[in-house]
Design a protein around this nucleic acid. Structure first.
Lengths: 357, 357
DNA sequence: CTGTTAGCGCATTCAT
DNA sequence: ATGAATGCGCTAACAG
């Protein structure tokens, strides 16, 4: 019945079971200190009336909301949706719901979202739009609920954080390309203002310098979409000393680059080798398959969520000691060797026989 | 300051601004019937104290929760995460938050989730695990908040629903393969208990029968993962009359099939043509690119969410007329012709336009 | 073991 | 235009 009779309340149950409201409250909270008889009576009254505790009232009384907030740049992005999946899973095990919000990497939206969420959740899992933002830092400082950052940290503020080894992953990838003998390696794509991208660039640069190779980085904003990537690649390949390999800083750039090279009939890896940061479902299915730096996405979500619930559990008892230095948890990345870097025989291309149907 | 001083309340503001609580309440609710002077005074007090209305209290007073519940089988699945993205967007425009829950297609989990959500949200967007479940039907009947189903309908109960044209899409795909001259078309993959899969099979079958071709369907549960799909394909191809084309009922099957055929060195489409249901990011990048039935994912989410907010708006005023027959909204699917069906030259470069998503 | 009572923070009559 | 008082449903003292 849509909009039917009003929901039964605790006192309805009390009246029906002929007990006090306290007793009912005890029953719905575990039934401790209630005689078996009354317990049974109350329980049957509860089911009879279809009573469900009013959550708002509980919250008003100062209980936990049993909701956490998840703030990500995008949920359509498979990286974050996988994180969300893991987080949801952990939350469910803790009897907690997850409010999903997306910022689109917009600080204003992020700010507003956090404000809304603070009063309505027990804690926050946040992918900060900017690691430097003073405003965000201040906002987080004044927040009364635990916040965990993941994927990207916040600087100059002690917040539990879990990230992946962007630097190490990128360095390993670049080193690998260098080991293949490539010296002119183009580092392509990515938003230069993002922590993750900067770390990856740092890793790339470190590896290049180790090898006395000249870093060649192209992160111009135009390189973010297909068109921009295309222009960039054309430009670099037309140069006097065209790159022998390309290291893509993120998923979408890898994919764009891959199809652009294909379109240009530039063979991978024999003419230009390719390694991408961040694995994706079809990376192993494409021909050639694509070598990538893989991030432990589920683990990232799980760890962040667990950290939050840990805080939440602590918060009940002793107050949190914010004095202690909090070091970000860094999860390991893995270099997945496939064909595009030159490691494997390029998989047998499909026979393109035009034989009839 | 973690766990610092208690949040300012409405009466704190009232005291600070030297007015009554009523006035403050008026101010935060639009400021009607308040003199400009007091309004300004109260406003400054509000910002000064950093007052944010307590949401639980409002809800307790009978207001809306300004939260809707989203119940999907999985959020890691790009289909549902794209839906979620669209839904989140619409919700945000309505000043409403979204609680994300996943069922993993488990009815028990779904049941529990709905119960939890009913008392804590204004409405629900649901992808039902089963279109037939009596239990779910009863649960939905007794629910006091609006529910919208999407992607899959519920039978024998009037619930606003928005789905895509699975039947028509599959029929069009199959017809297309038939037009290419293929007669032995294998319909592969998919969970037979799901509405969407059944519709697609129906569409496939209808097209086959139209053409007097013998339907060949393999939906055994073993065909759901890579291994199972592999076995199924091998079996069918070894047969006396091997299929000339394969129509995959869902994304993951398409991808598995694609890579299995590749591994078997069976050329697509010259030896076996391939069409999949549901588009995916790299379908156009693979060589050969894959012809698919594309669903309007964003539109699905948008429409479902809009429908819900429409109901929510109505609910305030006149009661909903549940007597009226509610027909599911059916969104159109599109057949995206690429190379794997035989429509394009196999290895010709793809167009320069960026991919769909 | 069990009941009575007093708020949690807010929106809302009903006065003024 | 404004304020005092009431109660939403629940939990937690504090009695019995």
């Amino acid at each position: 019945m849509k909009g039917g009779k009003r929901h039964a309340t605790l006192s309805d149950v009390a009246r029906s079971a002929d007990v006090g409201t306290t007793t009912v409250s005890r029953v719905i909270n575990g039934g401790a200190k209630v005689s078996p008889k009354t317990l049974a009576r109350v329980r049957s009254a509860i089911t009879e009336l279809g009573f469900i505790p009013n959550h708002a009232a509980r919250t008003l009384r100062g209980e936990q909301t049993k909701i956490i907030g998840l703030i990500v740049p995008s949920i359509a992005d498979s990286f974050f949706s996988s994180c969300a999946d893991a987080i949801q899973e952990v939350a469910r095990r803790h009897g907690t719901l997850v409010i999903l919000t997306v910022t689109n990497n917009d600080p204003a939206s992020e700010n507003a979202t956090i404000s809304t969420l603070v009063r309505r959740t027990d804690g926050l899992l946040l992918v900060p739009t900017s690691s430097h933002s003073l405003e965000l830092r201040n906002q987080l400082r004044d927040i009364s609920i635990p916040v965990i950052c993941f994927d990207r940290p916040m600087y100059d503020i002690q917040i539990p954080t879990v990230i992946t080894q962007n630097f190490e992953g990128a360095r390993a990838a670049t080193r690998h390309l260098l080991e293949h003998g490539f010296r002119r390696i183009l580092c392509l794509g990515g938003e230069s203002e993002l922590f993750t991208m900067n770390e990856r660039v740092r890793g790339y640069t470190a590896a290049m310098k180790e090898a006395n190779a000249r870093p060649l980085i192209d992160m111009r904003s135009t390189a973010c979409d297909y068109e921009g990537t295309s222009n960039a690649i054309v430009k670099h390949l037309k140069g006097a000393k065209p790159p022998q390999a390309i290291f893509c800083l993120k998923n979408s750039t890898t994919i764009s680059t891959y199809s652009i090279l294909q379109k240009m009939k530039i063979s991978i890896p024999s003419q230009v080798a390719l390694v991408g940061f961040d694995d994706f479902e079809l990376a192993s299915t494409l021909r050639p398959s694509i070598t990538v730096v893989q991030q432990p996405v589920e683990e990232l979500g799980h760890t962040a969520a667990r950290l939050l619930f840990q805080r939440l559990a602590l918060a009940k008892g002793m107050p949190i000691n914010d004095k202690e230095k909090i070091k970000p948890i860094q999860l390991k990345t893995r270099l997945i060797l496939r064909a595009s870097c030159g490691c494997r025989e390029v998989e047998e291309p499909q026979s393109i026989s035009a034989s009839g149907h």
